[in-house]
Design a protein around this nucleic acid. Sequence first.
DNA 1: CCCGGACCTAAACTGCGGTTCATGTCCGAG
DNA 2: CTCGGACATGAACCGCAGTTTAGGTCCGGG
Lengths: 143, 143
Amino acid sequence: MITKELTIGELAERSGVAASALRFYEREGLIHSRRTTGNQRRYHRTTLRRVAFIRASQSVGMPLSVIGEVLGFLPADVPPSREFWVRASECWSKEINARIERMERMRDRFTECIGCGCLSFEQCALVNPGDELADQGPGARRL
Amino acid sequence: MITKELTIGELAERSGVAASALRFYEREGLIHSRRTTGNQRRYHRTTLRRVAFIRASQSVGMPLSVIGEVLGFLPADVPPSREFWVRASECWSKEINARIERMERMRDRFTECIGCGCLSFEQCALVNPGDELADQGPGARRL
DNA sequence: CCCGGACCTAAACTGCGGTTCATGTCCGAG
DNA sequence: CTCGGACATGAACCGCAGTTTAGGTCCGGG
């Protein structure tokens, strides 16, 4: 059969992603499925691509919420166009570069500041960054 | 009075760290305190330095567990020596550089892989990194 | 002596990205 | 028709780095 649908087990095996994660992605709206009369999930083949995109994006550090937003522009059951990949790639690259720069600035500051031995409050830029790291709110912070 | 001890409120204000966080650090063994007869915390002044070090280390992405290990070499109530700062700085710099390199590799892979439009399983290095990201076990992953 | 603000504790909650568990249903091979 | 493996669901749990809440105690000024 051409364009045969996938069960969750098949999708899990072929994508290398656990079935529990796939159900989770579906709850979060990143992927979609049809249901059989017996309430089981059937995935369109293009879902394989969507999952690949999700994992690739995660591997460069993107949070699922952002990936979800971008995938929102990609209708279900439609294979992602070349344009889509390119646009997404550009978008991600910007983000990653920004993060790398941020880390480089931090490292330089740290060596500088530790090197001078100050580490006293009010003077030290490391202890009081002020610019970055500010207003991240309470709770856990992503590294 | 010289070498006056600090209450938790004072330490919180002077370090810019919430009292709840200071109690948390103490539970985790990163800082220490004496207790008054009324069971209230009194901090040695050098604790201010310890907290500064914790926050600085966090700002470059170090997890508390690792910071705790390093602080373990620094006895309570002893001001950190210059040597200590230098050694810690070297140690952190290595870690940060490793992370930056990792992110650069990822970014390059991503642009390369997305650029070619493949994103198919089994071939794509991004989808199947294999080397990094592997064996991180179940549960949440740090970004 | 009394009052209010600072302090104490343990337990529950946050967000992220899922996993694990308990319990119950579906579906295809024999 | 029956059996076992695949699937369904909701709820609870993991680690991290704390915050919030509830309920109780301490301490200094008036």
